[in-house]
């Protein structure tokens, strides 16, 4: 009897860690960036929903901790969510899994302009006052020499108000962020705002697993497999359409996502 008890305890001792490993909570850091990641939104925003859907099919448990971006960038030991380019300067990741993309749009308020505005190159921006979020403008000297004038604001809402009032002519913004702001501020005038898609402006939104996280590579592989599964099942498309509208997912979404998956595929190295 005693032997059976010892054997039972030994069995539990050996196998309990394995049983717990599948319930380990993988913590990610994100900063408030609605509607992509937000503690205020249902299922933590569009990318939050995608991440939780992937976790479910991959049998992983993932949690988001919302923290200011600077702290996330300065912490070179944590798992992050967002555009990898913001984090990679001082941190090494064992696995980066792009799960979505975002694009830059030029937004303007149609009633303020007699004619339709067409933007296909930097030259087309000359003569307009352009609103951008504070901190996103790099190479200021270049733009100054090129005769392109910017006005900065601290929030997206402020930019949208400025473009409506005519204080700026155009706003350079992320598609869903601008849409979300317009819906909130001017729900009856959504159709008066025009969006010009900026070709080649796509960036990835990814799950990034720190090289110091236990089993980082295998967790990354499981997330990748989970992503493929939710894409295949149609759950992924349904999440996107919840935010973009049915039939309004930006063209080329899946090709761009695939490109970023290849770009960040560390497992093939």
């Amino acid at each position: 009897m005693k032997g059976l008890y010892v054997a039972g305890m030994l069995f539990l001792y050996l196998y309990t860690p394995l049983a717990f490993s599948s319930t380990e909570i993988i913590k990610f850091g994100a900063n408030e960036s609605p509607p992509y990641w937000s503690s205020m939104l249902e299922k933590q925003g569009m990318c939050g929903e995608i991440m939780h859907a992937i976790s479910k099919v991959a049998n992983l448990k993932a949690e988001i901790e919302f923290t200011p971006l600077k702290r996330l960038i300065d912490d070179d030991n944590n798992n992050d969510l967002g555009n990898p380019e913001f984090y990679m300067k001082i941190q090494e990741f064992a696995s980066i899994v792009p799960i979505a993309i975002y694009r830059v749009n030029v937004v303007y308020y149609r009633p303020n302009h007699k004619e339709e505005i067409k933007i296909s190159s930097l030259d087309d921006l000359k003569g307009y006052k352009i609103g951008v979020i504070q901190g996103v403008l790099t190479e200021q000297a270049y733009f100054k020499n090129a005769g392109i004038t910017f006005e900065t604001s601290y929030t997206e809402d402020s930019l949208i108000k400025k473009v409506k009032r005519g204080r700026v002519d155009l706003v350079l913004s992320i598609d869903l962020v601008a849409q979300s702001s317009i819906k909130k501020l001017y729900p009856n005038e959504i159709g008066d705002f025009e969006f010009i898609d900026v070709a080649g402006s796509t960036s990835p939104i990814a799950l990034m697993i720190s090289e110091n996280h236990p089993n980082a590579k295998s967790i990354g592989k499981e997330f990748s497999a989970g992503l493929n599964e939710v894409i295949k099942s149609g759950a992924y498309k349904r999440i996107l359409e919840k935010y973009y509208g049915v039939g309004k997912i930006p063209n080329g979404w899946f090709d761009e996502l695939n490109k970023f998956q290849r770009l960040y595929d560390f497992h093939s190295e």
């Binding site: 960036s33 609605p34 971006l69 967002g82 830059v104 979020i133 913004s173 962020v177 080649g200």
Partner: peptide, 18 residues
Amino acid sequence: SSHVWATGPRVTQALLSP
């Protein structure tokens, strides 16, 4: 400013330079 970076476009020469 703490959250603008992740939601803002990186405005560089490469943007709109096809």
